[in-house]
Design a protein around this nucleic acid. Sequence first.
RNA 1: GCGGACGUGGUGAAACUGGUAGACACAAGGGACUUAAAAUCCCUUUCGGGUAACCGAGUGCGGGUUCGAGUCCCGCCGUCCGCACCA
Length: 869
Amino acid sequence: MSTRYNARAAEPKWQKLWEDRGTFRTPEPSGRPKYYVLEMFPYPSGRIHMGHVRNYTMGDVIARYKRARGFDVLHPMGWDAFGLAAENAAMEKNVHPKSWTYDNIAAMRTQLKAIGLSFDWDRELATCDPEYCGHEQAIFLDFLEAGFVSRRKSMVNWDPVDNTVLANEQVIDGCGWRSGAPVERRELTQWFFNITDFADDLLDGLDTLEHWPEKVRTMQRNWIGRSEGAKVFFALDGVAEAPDYKLEIFTTRPDTLFGASFCALSPHHPLTQKLAADNADLQAFIRKCDQIGTSEEAIETAEKLGFDTGLKARHPFIEGKTLPVYVANFVLMEYGTGAIFACPAHDQRDLDFARKYDLPVIPVVAPKDLTETARAAFVEELAAHSTDAFTGDGVAVNSDFLNGLDVMAAKRAAIEKLEAMSLGQGTINYRLRDWGISRQRYWGCPIPVIHCEACGIVPVPRDQLPVVLPDDVTFDKPGNPLDRHPTWKHVDCPKCGKPARRETDTFDTFVDSSWYFARFCAPKAGTPTVRAATDRWLPVDQYIGGVEHAILHLLYSRFFTRAMHRLGHVGLDEPFARLFTQGMVNHETYRDAAGKWLPPSEVAIETAGGKRVAKRISDGTPVTIGSIEKMSKSKKNTVDPDDIISQYGADTSRWFMLSDSPPERDVQWTDAGAEGAWRFTQRFWRLAAGADDIAPAGASRPESFDDAALALRRAAHKALDALTDDIEHLRFNRAVARIYELANAISGFVPANDAGKWAKREALEFMVLAAAPMMPHLAEECWAALGHEIPAVDTEWPVADKALIVEDSVTIAVQVNGKRRDELTVARDADNETVERAALALEKVGKAIDGKAVRKVIVVPGKIVNVVV
RNA sequence: GCGGACGUGGUGAAACUGGUAGACACAAGGGACUUAAAAUCCCUUUCGGGUAACCGAGUGCGGGUUCGAGUCCCGCCGUCCGCACCA
């Protein structure tokens, strides 16, 4: 044996062996239980980063562990390959998005393979592959036929410089994230998935996802934002062009209608727009509202502003009463109907507005159980002075037929009355919007429809799929290259044969990632999915990824699965049975004297007088050590996995990513930590491969063991048992600690006889096999050195002997008045009386009792004795 | 503002359903081996007092429940995340 473990030589060797043997190829149905492990697939940016290493290592540990436990494992990998970055690269570096993307994929595949991940590479796919696109287009056509898709005008964020639509998250402080130009609101005809039709189902489904983080479920619940209430129609006086105009509003508090003091319209409400057409003051007001901006700060400090339209709305319940109609900056067109009725007494915003414009405040709900006088005082105070609206539960007052009812009952009664009068109806409103999927981009999956003057929207016939992107495009001009391509969009209508126009918008890339998990079940099939395959593998048993996808990707995938279920592609609604969101990888930041960010590779850290001091390696100038932040290019605090792997090996990186921090929390990358992990791989190697005082492989178990050997066996079985449980629960940092414990136990053991040698081999084999999912290459190397022909990866997971885990005797703490005074070793099954007597006999206990009368003795078997005096 | 998570040594963290707080690792200090260094091995390391045995304090702060609280309850303070004029 050489004295050093050479990861650089060993790792490729074992990777090749696994590949040659087809070890990780997904098995054909075998009757064994299945397990589908999936990590969110990456965007092929060109380089793997440490976050990927962490994410994929966690998945790999599970995949390898489940494989060893006898599961048929599906563990695929692919590429979320469409997206804007490829077009930006095309513009900046003059490379074609396609070659840029596929080159990146090739580079990243090589990097991922160097980590030794147990993917079935035969199932690899990229969402930009024409086959994948074609199947996605077929699913879209299915959705279209099934009525899950619609096409309508909607307001979008339009970047006037880049000539493209921006997603909400691409708008920063009202400007395009790339161009910096102020974003315009523009009305555009767009394709939508009717996700709101599934809103209730998506909401209810969350209750079944018990193995999802509560946090993610809450976020989705809030995002869907279901609220029950009523639509109310207010007849308007003073709309000259439409005397019968009815203003439709949404409210969750129909019980407060008797407290209404005004109505308010969004600046973007159609009626507002109509009124503004010949009203310059209103136009100016609308402009003022739009200028306030969308930053959090602006919204938080924004004053309530209103513009009196002069219109009057007729109160639905009070004959002859009218309410002024304002345009107000705090009313959003995107929510509800874009118009409200305001009850200042019971809504803070309405109250702020009413106090500012001196509108009436009419309390119609009072706290329960107030005396007559107290209630009158409450009403008086709220109406006249208070600046705090009363939003709590209570009883209706000043509300005619609602008086005396509590809020819930009053809501119901109000809705009933509105419905009877045909002035409104109970309704449910969602915050969730339909999913706009049109993108005016080149590098995406083309939407497979054709626009014909005569026939309208015509789906591309299925035998003409996939609609592929043209290669000959230019990026020298802003806007969508598909749109200005000389020939691509010109096609004959499949229905009437006349010249027609291809849809030039492409899908939002979230569409691509909404079904890839289903495609992985049968990635080569001629149909988008194969039902037998999705039935066999879905749901994904363990899905792992970052929390940043808690809402969009996961919600869209849940929607897709439901829609695909109705069409028979899959047989279930929820694609991901268990979800785990892992934390980020952080690193210290460094800046030079000029405040410029420096990468860790250019900085040397020294410890002087207990303080850490940083210097620039090149010239020794001082460097400021900054805060610990998520690794990012902008702050240059990144560590390249390739560098780490070439320096220490993949197993060291994997080990370090799993140790110390709980997987759901952020982990800090430190050089010292990485070195520590590397030192341990070496120690592990010396311990396992260098052991010359162990029994031969396959030797039968001795009849008896001396105390030291028995203690080692106990330690080994205990560590194995605990580690197995830790991996089952994804507590990788604890699993790592168990390996350290076991290694420490083995290090301190010297066999005194053959039984001892046998015990040491057993412990070493446990250690190697238990570490194998985490450090697979090192484990193989050690396993072979221990004399095994069959690779560790094909060796079954060892099972701990429960009899060895339970100790015969236990050490328990003895407390006096809850304070620990001594400890006591007793037989595991000693009865309470014996334990109590032994505890009281202890010298230190007697001293602590100090002659006082013992009032009570609590004995918790196997845990503790507490003497109360 | 609303919702959620969290707060434990110099550091990352353990502590299952209330039962010996600090496992395991990093860092630091000391020692062994070596001509020397690297590597390795051993020891110390929650804080305060004491040579020591030992004593006292200790899981953000203040209360409470309990024989017993890092863990449960109430009220604060702080950090992080999500949402946000949602009618």
